[in-house]
Design a protein around this nucleic acid. Sequence first.
DNA 1: CTGTTAGCGCTTTCAC
DNA 2: GTGAAAGCGCTAACAG
Lengths: 346, 346
Amino acid sequence: MTARRGSVPTMHDVGKLAQVSAMTVSRVLKNDPGVSEATRERVFAAVDRLGYRRNQTARSLRLGGSGMIGLVVTNLANPFYSRLALGVQEVATEHGLRVVLSNSGEQADREPELVDGLVDHQVEGLIVVPAGSRQQHLAAAMRHVPVVFAARPPAGLDTDCVLVEDFHGAREATACLLADGHTRVAFLGNPPALYTGAERLRGFWAAHEEVGIEPDGTLIRQGLTDSATAERATLDLLGQPAPPTALFCTNNRISQGAIRALYKAGTTLPVAGFDNFDLSDVLGLPLTLVSYDADEIGRQAARLLVDRLEHRDGEPPASRRVTVPTHVIRHGAPSGDGPGQAPTGA
Amino acid sequence: MTARRGSVPTMHDVGKLAQVSAMTVSRVLKNDPGVSEATRERVFAAVDRLGYRRNQTARSLRLGGSGMIGLVVTNLANPFYSRLALGVQEVATEHGLRVVLSNSGEQADREPELVDGLVDHQVEGLIVVPAGSRQQHLAAAMRHVPVVFAARPPAGLDTDCVLVEDFHGAREATACLLADGHTRVAFLGNPPALYTGAERLRGFWAAHEEVGIEPDGTLIRQGLTDSATAERATLDLLGQPAPPTALFCTNNRISQGAIRALYKAGTTLPVAGFDNFDLSDVLGLPLTLVSYDADEIGRQAARLLVDRLEHRDGEPPASRRVTVPTHVIRHGAPSGDGPGQAPTGA
DNA sequence: CTGTTAGCGCTTTCAC
DNA sequence: GTGAAAGCGCTAACAG
């Protein structure tokens, strides 16, 4: 029933059955006009009969160009990156390209072999969410194929990249809290070595400067990597002699950890955070979220890549930097202020 | 800086530089012991110097076997499937296999071309979450490569598959609600044409039979496809003359829609549902969830596939069906200061 | 230890 | 309209 090896038909087999040469089969399958209707039909009949499919590997070797692009993300378990992957998929499919997916698990040291492996497989281009700042392997990959960076910028490499408005979004969300009168806003951030971590802290800081408040150093926690560490950091902050009156979290997992900590502590505090997430609207918490279209990052990255592929010959265009816009959404407490919900039904 | 076409070095180039034949280069790169240390070093030097990388496409053509497997999921935006993909990734990487990813978007009619495309690209095997029950294209694919089904079973095809305990999980969760004294449990389900939809309804029904209760037909809503339709259905149920006292939802998106409806309606009702999801523990709702390891579905599927690939020659093993276990987790309403109602409310 | 030959399946080029 | 030859880059099989 399964995969009978040695029985995969080739063009020669099709040709033999249709009483033509392999060359003619090739022409028919390519819709070459210079083939008589009669043989064309015979060939198609033979193709159907044998269940023949062109061997893309052989075509790739002959034609150059595998019809595949590589995508390297840091953590497919994070909805952010799976949406990004979906966006890449979407545009790739539109252009007849297949996506080969790799997951670095945020381990920068594993990234080089993943990238090299993809290059070996003759992907025509790469979209990478770089896990670290050491990027020589990506520079090396760029000598073979175009590389587009997503979500995090290249470190000293001249190539396209797609980012979100990290600074702007963080500043705006923080500003919302400050405008509500908060003067003690805690910062719960991912490692500052990460571009997003640094930029979002910068935005947090800028919002404070704009209103002439100096952030309290005891309220700043960085290096949080997941929901659990964020939860602990939040509980710790809450237990301080001078606790915060609001929280700013730099990503979805950190927001979730903070929210869990508040829940466990039986407290409510206004929370602002980067990234929207499921059910954020039904938590009944005063929530200020920096939302954006994660799919769009992937789509844009794929578009930039496809564009380079289409202009392969000729001078490569100057490298571009695309930014995906953010907007702040606010959810109110159950009976609180903010854009109200519509209690319909019942 | 980018991709200089026409300059990609081949084994011949390396050989020329190292003053050996391409064959010797091939041997060195394969770690063939029959090469003198001297030439070995010269070859490696040349490889480094040119930045040479073996062309996998050419190797695939020569050796047969592309080193890639195909994965087709229905909706990468659903964390369930991205986790599944992650699991596949993980095991594939362990075995030196690359994953080519496709997303059918739950459109059954798009699936055939995706599958065919992957087969054309010479993937060595396929893992598929089938979008529909018409599966001739998968039968056709099976003539080329082994195919493993994930999350949904094959319809009349003899091959491996990995499922969750749909029936058992749904029965158990429903039984929890019934044990709490509920007699009017609503069922909010995905399309019954889907295996999971049918099985989970069966489990819901069985739990009722076990305690001698006949489910009320007016409380059963099927064909829900996303959170929005589930939300509407829930609001509708709540507005009925004889509303339910608890809800059972067949997947994460439906649960979320139902929860949103309850929130908007300002009501609390015990909710049971298939699939765990982020923040389920902090909603302050009486929640009964059928949880399981989605990654594991992907891992198991990949293991079954790899196993078949490793026993390619020789009699193929009989087809296997693996089941990933579920367990029920319960979250309570907030004890003490919560606004929740008693489980048997109304 | 190393090189030569042949061919994986396909398509470009040129001949008929 | 169609076919024969050559070769994409690599490697088994056989020399030497």
